[in-house]
Design a protein around this nucleic acid. Structure first.
Lengths: 341, 341
DNA sequence: ATGAAAGCGCTAACAG
DNA sequence: CTGTTAGCGCTTTCAT
């Protein structure tokens, strides 16, 4: 646990009989260095096992070589897959990845205030986190490029973003149920009015409404329920909804996790799926495959990867026009949807 | 996208009518500064919205204020939960978290060579990654404190670590099946001879063997199968095993993910669970709860949290003796195990 | 209690 | 092509 001083660029310079400047040029592939001296220097570098001190390099070049990803609830499977896309896109870049997880509004404040600083990061990815108006100044004034993944804001259309079209997705899912012949279709989603104001559930509900209207089906308030995101909550809501005098014959859930809760609720009530109840989820995370759940597939990994790539592009050339892309969700039919009996 | 120069400590000093050194002392809570001047300085800091440049600070104090976590396959649920424990323990520390994901041996090399450097990090957590002998010199010579989570090595007993006892866990799981009356018990796990040499599956198998021997039950080679980690592979292995002339009446899987594969395989073969086949998994990730899977619960989140705390302790005081802790796994009985029929 | 000055290890502008 | 020099922005002796 000794204090053996690290090898510095000076040591290399001395050993190779050149100046530190030349060593710097040599290791940074500057053309301004003789091929022979470069080789000699690189040999010494290897002998001495020299690696440039990152902090010094960062301070000197005025860049942090770090990218932050600001993300809520990163253990949620859908988020985790998106993150993996980010990690994979960044893995052979020069950038370090700084993960800032957000579980509470305080952490969100910290994320926006302490992380989005030019002396901390070169760029940021904001993933799946709705952006309240109050933070707009911090984002637009952040002075570092920001890419939005699975989130957006009308005032931030100068930023690159990658999102899904949740309204269209909710509509497609609902249309599938309508086409199967369902007329009593319920919706179970997230609470709209949380500190985070997640909107995907809300958007999917809007798609649901649009599909019902297009099919001239009534919008029945008792067929809408919202609760904290989670299986147990969805289970409870499903039980309540299935206890109605005239229960729905199909339920669209705002996520696969909640759809699984609905399946559990149906089982609790002795309601057969898909015989007496069709269930459709959203995301197509692994559990959907396991449970044979019909769902809307989002390209989660891809969204992370594309967003990260897009940030790298901007970082390389700040003049590029921002990539903005909508990834459409696709219906995956499995075993939980069928015509009503 | 303007170049408005960031506020530096000099600006604050000038504005407050003191020297940069005093400002530094003031913001770092040095006792060597008059209370009045400190307040004046802090006021200016607030007015100018000054935040110290991290790279400069790091270079100056010779620490990186960064902790790396080196982890394979971080989207696997069990890994993801452990990571969340780490993140949570570090969230209100001064340290940044640098995540180095490992999916290939090359990334592992990079992780051990480029990440474990004193100029990059102040300390590291190695999570769920077996350590081949060839890397021992790099670890012992890394010159930064390292904490092992869910992995260990006889030569690294000077390091703090947190592990589960996989042998004991495998034994407990198997004993449960034995006590239910099973005598034909199969094991489905990971391939031992991969580039990563994961050992947990192997250890759990050793526990399985010990339990069988203690119960005077024969060890039948046809009741052992190994394959790449994953649901589909486990499903296939289960089908093969259930096709034996004398199939097992119970199967222990090396992980919940694989146990779910076994459930699928059983369903494929029309084998009722738990009527004709008992299945037990390992980890107790969310899917186990969903599927009603009997399993061995590991304290995943806790392991990450404890490991990170332990690293923080060492970082604060390098003289502390390393915390080494075994977290025992606990049997969680659900609906997939029953006496043989 | 405060200021001056040196230095962390690197890069880059300037001379030659 | 290479050496010299001046920072990057902060911390930390050393004086006072």
């Amino acid at each position: 646990v000794g204090g053996k001083r690290a090898v510095t660029i000076r040591d290399v310079a001395r050993q190779a009989g050149v100046s530190p400047g030349t060593v710097s040029r040599a290791i940074n592939n500057s053309p301004l260095v003789n091929e022979e001296t470069r080789e000699r220097i690189l040999r010494v570098v290897r002998e001495l096992n020299y690696v440039p001190n990152l902090a010094a390099r960062r301070l000197s070049i005025g860049r942090t070589l770090t990218i932050a990803v600001i993300v809520p609830f990163f253990t949620r499977p859908s988020v985790s897959v998106r993150l993996n896309g980010v990690v994979s896109a960044l893995s052979d870049s020069q950038y370090d990845l700084l993960i800032h997880n957000i579980d509470t509004p305080e952490q969100r404040d910290a994320g926006f205030q302490e992380v989005l600083r030019k002396d901390r990061i070169d760029g940021a990815l904001i993933v799946s986190l709705p952006i309240p108006d109050q933070y707009l100044p911090q984002l637009t004034g952040a002075n570092v490029p920001i890419v939005l993944i699975d989130t957006s804001h009308p005032a931030l259309n100068a930023f690159p973003w990658i999102t899904g079209d949740d309204v269209a997705g909710g509509r497609t899912a609902t249309e599938h149920l309508v086409q199967l012949g369902h007329t009593r279709i319920g919706y179970i989603g997230d609470i709209v009015d949380t500190p985070f104001h997640f909107v995907s559930s809300c958007d999917r509900y809007r798609g649901y409404c649009a599909a019902l209207q297009a099919a001239h089906l009534p919008l029945r308030p008792e067929y809408y329920a919202e609760g904290d995101h989670g299986r147990p909550q969805a289970r409870e809501m499903a039980r309540t909804m299935l206890s109605l005098p005239e229960p729905p014959t199909a339920i669209l859930a705002a996520s696969d996790t909640q759809a699984v809760g609905v399946l559990e609720g149906a089982r609790d009530m002795g309601v057969d799926v898909p015989g007496a109840l069709s269930v459709i989820g959203y995301d197509d995370i692994e559990i959907a495959d396991i449970m044979g759940l019909t769902t809307m597939r989002q390209r989660l990994f891809e969204s992370g990867r594309l967003g990260a790539k897009s940030l790298l592009t901007v970082l390389n050339d700040p003049e590029t026009t921002p990539t903005q892309q909508v990834l459409h969700a696709e219906l995956v039919e499995r075993d939980t949807t069928a015509p009503p009996s």
